[in-house]
Design a protein around this nucleic acid. Structure first.
Ligand SMILES: [Mn+2]
Ligand SMILES: [Mn+2]
Ligand SMILES: [Zn+2]
Ligand SMILES: [Zn+2]
Lengths: 155, 155
DNA sequence: AGCCAGTTGCAAACGGTTTGCAACTGGGTG
DNA sequence: CACCCAGTTGCAAACCGTTTGCAACTGGCT
């Protein structure tokens, strides 16, 4: 038996096919343009959340405008194809999300070199349920990121 | 016997004396000025994190400049008298921290009306320790906030 | 009373993000 | 396959929270 994870995140299917991504776009009546294909291609090959500027930097220069990336990420987020993360440094980060996955998961970030580790653990459901009930809230979810010193930066 | 909380936050001592706060400033060789006293007075009476703009709005108009508030909060944070929180809306929020307390705690925020509830629960230490060990990180801590619909907004 | 490091107001700069607009194009229609 | 237009793009300007340079001011010590 394999260790089973209580949530199935995007970690399960490493890379999504570009074709699957574009068909998902087409299905939503969105156009497959040069910039969009390029952005998806970059996200597809990157395992951790990327800022708009980082995506921009990876693009062959002149490929597309920064504003276009902002607009693309907004759209992809609305379609649920991308998940937004916040490492508290003032820049949004985005990660591709598998189809049918809500992308909810967490990270461990080095406060010195910014190395990122994907974390499988989540805040215990039972405690969250208690917090929600105690306060009469519904639809409760959480934002959670871990910070510390990575092995390299401890030396 | 009273229900004991595993961490001792600022929730224990409801309001700190203004005198205690100013003496804490003096001890650090900081000047007690009009703006600073006014800011502390506002924080002292507010149970939840406030943005700089919110503090500014509560100040008798003309009392002090917005930039002064930004500078004051930076200083207070550095002295550990105030804790910074991030509800993901792009504006930092600050809450007064009791002496000897690091202020670590969490909130439950209504996504519709922005009501805030102080939360006593924390991410389980044992799981956090495991996450740190597994990845060789040290000094691991976390940022965690809950979001949902408050009782009022469900109607 | 006098001094000076620390503090303040003001305005400009900053960095991430959004937006108005006119030119352009993907992809369905006939 | 040519046409057409809603959707998309680049560019520049606007935005918004935050920081900073600077000259005037002041709390608290001698
Ligand atoms: Mn991730
Ligand atoms: Mn709080
Ligand atoms: Zn989680
Ligand atoms: Zn915690």
């Amino acid at each position: 038996m394999k260790t089973s994870c209580q949530h199935r995140h995007r970690h399960s299917h490493k890379k999504q096919e570009l074709a699957a991504l574009t068909s998902r776009l087409r299905r939503e009546a969105r156009k497959i343009t040069g910039p969009r294909a390029a952005i998806l291609e970059i996200l597809r090959h990157h395992p951790h959340p990327l800022t708009n500027k980082e995506i921009f930097a990876q693009l062959p220069k002149g490929e597309c405008d920064l504003a276009t990336i902002y607009r693309a990420m907004q759209m992809l987020e609305k379609l649920g194809m991308v998940k937004r993360f916040d490492f508290g440094d003032g820049a949004a980060r985005f990660e591709l999300v598998g189809e049918g996955d809500d992308g909810h998961h967490h990270h461990l970030v080095c406060t010195r070199c910014a190395e990122v580790v994907e974390i499988a653990e989540c805040f215990p459901e039972e405690i969250e349920r208690r917090i929600a009930n105690t306060n009469g809230f519904t639809g409760v979810t959480h934002r959670l990121e871990f910070f510390g010193l990575c092995p390299e930066c401890q030396k």
